[in-house]
Every structure is written in C-alpha cells, then in structure tokens.
C-alpha cells in the first residue's frame, strides 16, 4: 500500500520525534523544575521564551536557524570549528530545530505537574533527611509521572506534525530530512494524489490515536481520583 519511500519517510519521522523527545526530557525537566519552584523575577521572561514556539510562525524559526546554523552564522562557525560541518540539510540539524520547536510541549505539562505536587511532600522529605537529589528521584518523579507521560506524548506527536521548519532547513533529502509531512507535500505538488491520500490517512489515524490515548487516560485518572 505505502511505497518504500513513504515507509522511509515514516521511519525517519519516528526517529526524529523519538530522539527529540529523549533530548527534551533531559533539557526540559530541569527547566520545568526551576520554573515550578522559583520565586525569581526571571520566571516570567524564561516562561515567555519557552512558550515562544507556540505563537511564532515556523518560518521565523526556520529563517533564524538557517542563518544561525549556516557557514557564516554563530552556530555554524562553532560546529565548523569542531569539525562537524554545518547543520542545515542534516538529520541532526532537524533534531536541533525540533528541540526548539517542541520545547513548550515538554516544559509546560512538566511544570504543571511539579507545581501540583506543592511544598508539603518536599518538606516532609527534608525532615526525613532526604537530600534534594534523593527527594527529586524518590518523591517528585513518581508523583509527577502522569505529567511526564503527557509531556512525552505531546512532544513526540508535535514533532511528528512539524512541517514549516523542516521545509526551510531540511533540503528535502530522502532518508535524511524528508519526513512524512514533507513527503505528503511532495506528493501533492507532483500531482500524485493517490499517494498523498494514503500517507495523509496514516498521519490522521496516528494523530487521532495519540490524542485519544491522552484524553482517555485523563478521564480514567479523574475517575480514580
């Protein structure tokens, strides 16, 4: 039913979304923790920066990334000095872009989960002489588990749905940067509507399944509570 190049695009999309989600767990957790606990004046500005990708047109992000990661941009100069070449048109370039693009979908659910825990469990842990790190791993993480699951699912799904940024910095290379959304765009432009329909149906089914899982879980949790 799906052609080899469609399957290649789907596999690439899954790899991109998976790696982006893993990286964002590592970067997003400390940011969300800080945002949830701090009383600093910087909470507002940092929160706003994290939320920026929600409202910025992908073309703005794509434009800045293309210039910054290009051979004359600051990031490009840096990667070249490390002997890595430049990032546009590479898989890792897309990963970097996706991390920026999906950061609010990781940080905001985590921040909500951390805030919901409140001060009390942490104070109790402290009176039992748990170190802050110990508290985080044995108290906060288990309590915030639903938040982590939501954040992971949303980040993964949002990265799968990425299009504009990839179009601007990807260069449409099969197996490297041609993800499913770009493959569909290609099919439509080439007037291959049958192929476009099949791949679009897969994306539609996937997106619906993801959201359905989320909403079913949410109502289950509410029933248990």
């Amino acid at each position: 039913m799906l052609t080899d190049s469609d399957l290649q695009a789907i596999w690439l999309t899954i790899r991109l979304a998976g790696i982006t989600t893993l990286i964002l767990f590592l970067i997003g957790t400390p940011i969300a923790w800080w945002l949830a606990r701090t009383r600093s004046w910087w909470k507002g500005p940092l929160g706003a920066v994290v939320a920026l990708p929600l409202v910025l047109p992908p073309s703005v992000l794509g434009f800045y990334l293309l210039l910054a990661m290009g051979p004359n941009g600051p990031v490009g100069q840096f990667t070249q000095s490390l002997g890595l070449g430049t990032l546009p048109f590479t898989f890792w370039g897309l990963v970097v872009a996706s991390v920026f693009y999906s950061v609010p979908f990781m940080v905001q659910p985590l921040q909500n989960a951390f805030e919901a825990i409140g001060d009390r469990p942490l104070e109790v842990a402290a009176t039992l002489r748990a170190s802050p790190l110990d508290t985080f791993f044995s108290v906060v993480l288990p309590l915030a588990r639903p938040g982590f699951i939501t954040a992971g699912i949303l980040t993964f799904a949002h990265t799968v749905g990425e299009f504009g940024v990839v179009l601007m910095i990807g260069g449409n290379i099969p197996g490297v940067t041609r993800v499913a959304s770009v493959q569909i765009y290609d099919h439509v432009e080439a007037m291959e509507y049958g192929d476009a329909h099949r791949l679009s149906a897969v994306m539609l089914a996937f997106s619906f399944a993801v959201l359905l899982t989320m909403y079913m879980r949410r109502s289950n949790l509410r029933r248990e509570a």
């Binding site: 293309l66 546009p88 432009e189």
Partner: peptide, 15 residues
C-alpha cells in the same frame, strides 16, 4: 528546494 526561489536561497545564504 521546494521551488526555484528556495533553491537559490540555499545558495545565497551560503548553506
């Protein structure tokens, strides 16, 4: 490039 303008843009930005 998605079209010829983007093809040019990849070159003119030095990428």
């Amino acid at each position: 490039g998605e079209n010829i303008s983007q093809t040019l843009q990849f070159v003119s930005t030095g990428n």
